[in-house]
């Protein structure tokens, strides 16, 4: 796929997260599913957010659109979207941004469409909410236009159909059309958009994302647990673990020279062509994510890390530190894991 390591028009941030914290109450005190997370997303890039289920990547997305499911709450930090702190906006002001300037494509196109409403109604109601000045026929015309854009055939017929009458791939295209229908989307958050689809359909949908991203000049945050998806589409990758970003890097650098032991573990779980017979079994990362209600004092990956050193790694939470241009890692020992580290610095410079 023709993609450069760095996004076009890099530098100008469209979304800046500063110390964002999402907490849920529990009987043992509240716990942070997103822990003081800072991140800058550049205009026009596709940022992949990767991690195991439960690492907080979906909650991060919900926090950006202001829909953390209760009793969870975004308790701290700032979410600057085009320079405006979303956290400080009123609920209605946030609602006006959702579905218009910031849109979301969900994981499950099947369950995310209302089974009792026609496709057309579910598309045009976005316009009714955000473009009240449009007439009924204008809304319909816009729906047809955007359906064509995402490659839905027989758009006119589809409008009158119910979700159960469509295939999974078309449903996901409908969800994408829904995100684009206002025509003003600056930030598109795709939460596992291909997880529920067949492999062949998956590739088509990902291609569509890449195409639309350049057509519409929008910024995409692509949330996934699947590194293969990221490899195909993203410019940059943020790896999340237990509510924190542990590594942030341009996509090629990350695959060439992963710095964080967790990233390496994730990469090893990918099936590889040409792997030797003895290593042909799929690797897994042993152990479990720590209990976030009582987070450990040190590195969150300590209990599962093959390079963990008692006294250092379990003493304090490592900071997310800059390693090279565009590269950040959250590990006490990244320098001491030499072979890889050298390769990484070399590749980046």
């Amino acid at each position: 796929m023709s993609r450069q390591g760095v996004a076009p028009g890099a530098g100008e941030p469209v979304l800046q997260l500063e110390g964002v914290e999402v907490r849920f109450p529990s009987p043992h005190g509240s716990f942070a599913v997103v822990d003081r997370l800072s991140l800058s997303v550049t205009r026009g890039e596709i940022l992949g957010v990767v991690g195991e289920s439960g690492c907080g990547k979906s909650m991060l997305a919900r926090s950006i659109v202001g829909l953390v499911p209760p009793p969870g709450r975004t308790v701290g930090g700032a979410i600057l979207f085009d320079g405006v702190d979303l956290v400080r906006l009123s609920p209605d002001e946030r609602r006006r941004i959702r579905g218009d300037a910031i849109a979301v494509v969900p994981q499950e196109p099947m369950t995310s469409l209302n089974p009792t409403l026609r496709i057309g109604d579910q598309l045009t109601e976005v316009l009714r909410a955000h473009r009240p000045e449009m007439s009924r026929s204008q809304r319909r015309a816009r729906a047809l236009e955007v359906m064509e854009q995402v490659g839905i055939q027989f758009a006119g017929q589809r409008l009158a159909q119910y979700p159960h009458e469509l295939s999974g791939g078309i449903r996901q295209r409908v969800m994408i059309a829904m995100a684009l229908i206002c025509g003003a989307v600056k930030l598109l958050i795709a939460d596992e958009p291909t997880t529920a689809l067949d492999v062949t359909i998956q590739a088509q949908i990902l291609e569509l994302f890449v195409r639309l991203q350049s057509e519409e000049q929008m910024t995409v945050i692509l949330i996934t647990h699947d590194l293969a998806v990221v490899a195909q589409t993203a410019h940059r990758v943020a790896v999340m673990y237990a509510g924190c970003i542990v590594e942030l890097a341009p996509v090629l650098d990350l695959f060439d020279a992963p710095l964080h032991p967790y990233t390496r573990g994730l990469l090893e779980t990918l099936p590889r062509r040409g792997a030797s017979a003895s290593k042909s079994h799929l690797a897994t990362i042993a152990g479990a994510v720590p209990d976030l209600a009582r987070p450990p004092a040190g590195c969150r990956f300590f209990n599962r890390c093959p390079h963990a050193l008692a006294g250092i790694c379990d003493a304090a939470l490592p900071a997310l530190e800059p390693v090279a241009d565009e590269r950040w890692v959250r590990c006490h020992r990244w320098r001491e894991l030499p072979a890889v580290a050298a390769a990484a610095v070399g590749a980046a410079s």
């Binding site: 579905g99 979301v104 995310s112 409403l117 955000h130």
Partner: peptide, 20 residues
């Protein structure tokens, strides 16, 4: 999820409850 989606689309809460 379609109720969550209706909110994500920026519909008013009244529309989310009554329509969806």
């Amino acid at each position: 999820e379609y109720v969550a989606m209706a909110r994500t689309k920026g519909l008013r809460e009244r529309t989310v409850i009554l329509r969806h």
